[in-house]
């Protein structure tokens, strides 16, 4: 089902703008269309604007009046402040939470991509026993809800696993460590990454690969010097999808990293803040905005890849 969506994305852009046929018949609905669009966009913007505005208002003011009242007197500077952000980043602990999120999200993005790219290359251009079966497995695992994996993996992390007295998985004390959550995210992201990259790498022209082989390049060289550079669009699309997925994730971080101040990621910190100081809006909104800042930067700077990544990654367990 993912393939169908990706296919749609790959189709050539048919027309950038209707221009010509607008004059044929659609002139009547012009105002209706514009107003409806404007109203919907406005409704969609209101929640985010509320957070943004409140995050810059002083504690006393935001506690006393609704944020929309500021439109009556937007230039009353005594009501504006940066102190909220200072407090959230400092005593609120959101600076270290931000760094922890980076430490979780970057390797959790790169590791599955590297592993999936090697696997995708093998599935596309190498022949070996069990190739088809293994790939069907990958396709099947794509929609497994990750709730199915939480309990057993946490058990592996805290006490290892043994089979009839034989230790098959050592007790690595991975619970609460970065390595533990990287591996978990790698496992959950891998089926989709392998599937997408295999579709892309498999559609590269075979003549390129074959001529490199004739020139004496081994598989590792072909993969690293030829296939990876050619697959940058697919790699970037998945990278953005996975990065945002991990950055915005609460569940996996809650289970494997927990809420201690040293390791908690930004979503956990925010969720805890809601629990402990749910009505301190000056702090909640600035903290929320800190957590959204990076995804929004990614969104605005890499919008094309972002859309491609999200639509490609639409089905994930």
């Amino acid at each position: 089902m993912t393939l169908a969506v990706v296919g749609e994305q790959k189709q050539p852009r048919r027309r950038a703008r209707r221009g010509a046929d607008e004059t044929v018949g659609v002139t009547s609905g012009g105002w209706f269309v514009k107003i409806t669009i404007a109203v919907v966009v406005l409704i969609w913007m209101v929640p985010a604007v509320g957070v943004l505005v409140t995050s810059f208002r002083t504690e006393a003011v935001s506690n006393r009046t609704g944020w929309w009242t500021m439109f009556a007197h937007p230039f009353r500077t005594s009501e504006w402040t940066l102190q909220n952000y200072r407090e959230a980043l400092g005593t609120g602990g959101f600076k270290s939470a931000f760094l922890n999120s980076l430490a979780v999200a970057i390797p959790s993005t790169v590791i599955p991509i590297v592993i999936a790219a090697f696997a995708a290359y093998a599935f596309s251009w190498m022949s070996f026993r069990g190739r088809h079966v293994m790939f069907v497995l990958v396709v099947g695992l794509m929609v497994v809800p990750l709730q199915m994996a939480l309990i057993p993996i946490l058990r592996l992390y805290t006490s290892g696993a043994s089979l009839g007295g034989l230790r098959v998985f050592p007790d690595l004390e991975l619970n609460g460590t970065f390595l533990g959550i990287w591996l978990a995210h790698t496992g959950f992201g891998l089926p989709l990454a392998t599937y997408l990259l295999r579709n892309y790498i498999g559609s590269l022209p075979s003549s390129i690969i074959e001529s490199a082989q004739i020139d004496g390049a081994d598989h590792f060289t072909i993969f690293w010097r030829l296939v990876v550079p050619l697959s940058v669009p697919a790699l970037a699309a998945f990278a953005i999808f996975q990065f945002l997925w991990v950055w915005n994730d609460l569940l996996v971080a809650y289970v494997f990293l927990g809420g201690t101040r040293d390791t908690r990621v930004i979503t956990i910190a925010l969720a805890n803040l809601v629990g402990s100081r749910g009505e301190n809006w000056y702090l909640l909104t600035s903290a929320a905005f800190i957590s959204m800042a990076l995804p929004l930067v990614v969104f605005f700077s890499l919008q094309r890849y972002f859309v491609r990544g999200l639509t490609a990654g639409s089905v994930k367990g």
Binding site: W44, P47, A48, G50, M292
Partner: peptide, 20 residues
């Protein structure tokens, strides 16, 4: 602008609507 909320986390969105 309609697509933008897709970039933020469920937690962030929950805070946003708690304010509402």
């Amino acid at each position: 602008l309609i697509f933008l909320p897709m970039a933020i986390s469920f937690v962030g969105a929950a805070v946003t609507f708690r304010l509402i």
